[in-house]
């Protein structure tokens, strides 16, 4: 059980497919104009990810290595078609809002990456869990972006006006430049947080060490920390 929880944490935080691995940038930038769209996109991808991971894991012994990518694509596109039809039947407005980006889940690199890196090497249950955690990580990242962009770009959340009427909507956040700006800032913030938690962990593990080393350890950590910060800042709006 513990192992699955760790997987979940990895997917959502430490190995977040969008904010840390920087995979699947196209839907991330394109579908996060509102929180609703972002959540819908994240959920659709999560559903596909779980199903495809389970199937690929089941079939991992039968798929010949040479044609594995093609086989993955076939499996993924089968599930994407199912999800697309379901959304068309039950969530038509969302289906219309996301448009082309639903079929494009087929070539979402998060899904192919998890198939290649995880599901093709692991048993069914861990693969399902991997799909769930990575999918939730993707959804989480999309929701952050969607929240910021909808709030700044149209002053509302989930379609309800949140900010006062006098707030002048910054339309730029609904446009592609705003997507890049927001993504840059969110990634920078995540890098900063990761650097801080890394440092805390290192300090904790360094604390029981002999006191002579203790005098220099915080200094070294500080140096590494500011380097990480500079790196994070440099990556902004790349």
């Amino acid at each position: 059980m513990n192992r699955y929880l760790r997987q979940l944490k990895e997917g959502i935080l430490d190995q977040n497919p969008t904010l840390v691995q920087l995979l699947g940038m196209c839907p991330t930038l394109a579908t996060t104009t509102s929180l609703e769209n972002a959540f819908g996109m994240g959920m659709a991808a999560t559903a596909v990810l779980i199903c495809s991971n389970v199937f690929i894991s089941l079939l991992r012994k039968f798929i010949p290595r040479q044609v594995r990518i093609a086989a993955y694509i076939v499996i993924v596109s089968g599930f994407v078609t199912a999800v697309e039809l379901l959304m068309r039947a039950y969530l038509y407005p969302l289906y219309q809002a996301l448009g082309l980006f639903i079929p494009l889940i087929v070539v979402n690199c998060i899904i192919l990456a998890r198939a290649e890196a995880f599901a093709s090497k692991n048993k069914v249950l861990p693969s399902a869990m991997d799909g769930l955690s990575m999918g939730l990580g993707f959804t989480f990242a999309l929701c952050i972006l969607g929240t910021v962009r909808e709030l700044l770009g149209s002053g509302s959340l989930l379609g309800y006006r949140v900010l006062p009427e006098s707030y002048p909507d910054m339309v730029v956040f609904l446009l592609p430049p705003g997507a890049f700006l927001t993504l840059g800032f969110v990634i920078a913030a995540v890098q900063k947080l990761r650097g801080m938690s890394e440092e805390r962990r290192r300090r904790r593990s360094a604390a029981p060490a002999d006191t002579a080393a203790g005098a220099t350890a915080p200094v070294a950590a500080d140096g590494a920390h500011s380097a990480g910060e500079a790196d994070g800042a440099g990556r902004k709006e790349d």
Partner: peptide, 10 residues
């Protein structure tokens, strides 16, 4: 340019 895209009207 940022302002232009953000508040074209203004």
């Amino acid at each position: 340019v940022f302002l232009m895209l953000a508040w074209t009207g203004g």
